[in-house]
Simulated assay, not measured.
Amino acid sequence: MIRAALVLALLAVPAAAQTAPGVAEGCVTCHGPRGAGSGSVPPLAGRDAADLATAMAAFRANERPATIMNRIVRGYTEAEVAAAVTYFSGLR
């Protein structure tokens, strides 16, 4: 009964509200819906939080090859990066 109520409640939420929160919204433009990956862009969903944080730090320091991530990540605060890492690592 509770499961049915939860499903109905989620269906009542507008589609825009079901998308990635905050800074993660920008990530899905390239990384696909819910960070599932898109073409040659790797998935973020379900990846280890420490691995994602390390990758973001490496992009920011220009220590990891990138076409655009090294520029994008510099536009985010540490708190925003942490929020995106938490969101994507929590997806299954």
Rank of each mutant, 00 (worst) to 15 (best):
A9Y: 08
Y76N: 06
M1G: 12
A50P: 00
P65I: 04
A17C: 11
A49Q: 00
R92I: 03
F88Y: 15
Y76K: 04
G39W: 02
D48I: 10
P42I: 09
G46K: 05
R64S: 11
V73T: 02
S40D: 14
A53G: 04
V81H: 06
G26M: 06
R64A: 08
G32P: 10
P42D: 08
R47E: 10
A45Q: 12
H31R: 13
A24P: 01
A53V: 02
H31V: 07
L44G: 03
I72L: 15
A50L: 12
C30R: 02
G37H: 14
N62H: 11
R64K: 06
A15D: 12
C27T: 02
A4I: 11
M69E: 13
L10Y: 12
R34P: 01
D48H: 09
A55N: 11
A16M: 11
R92M: 05
A20M: 04
E78D: 15
V41I: 14
E80M: 05
L52F: 00
R92E: 14
T86R: 05
V85R: 00
A66N: 13
A53E: 04
A5E: 12
S40N: 10
A83N: 05
V23R: 08
M69K: 05
R74L: 11
A9K: 12
N70C: 06
A49L: 02
A57H: 06
Y76H: 09
A84F: 03
L52P: 00
I2A: 08
A61S: 13
V23E: 05
A57Q: 09
E78C: 05
G37Y: 07
E78S: 14
A66T: 04
V28R: 14
R60A: 12
V7E: 13
T67L: 10
S89E: 10
H31Q: 02
V73Y: 00
G46L: 07
A17N: 06
S89R: 01
A20K: 00
E25H: 10
H31K: 02
R74V: 03
R3H: 11
G26V: 06
R47A: 01
N70D: 13
L10V: 05
G26E: 04
V81D: 01
A15C: 05
M1I: 14
A53P: 01
G90R: 15
A57K: 15
F59M: 03
E78P: 07
T77H: 14
L91P: 00
G22K: 06
V7R: 09
E25I: 07
R3D: 11
D51I: 10
S89T: 06
P43V: 01
L52A: 00
V41N: 10
P65R: 13
T77R: 08
R60K: 10
P14M: 01
I68K: 14
A57S: 14
R60F: 02
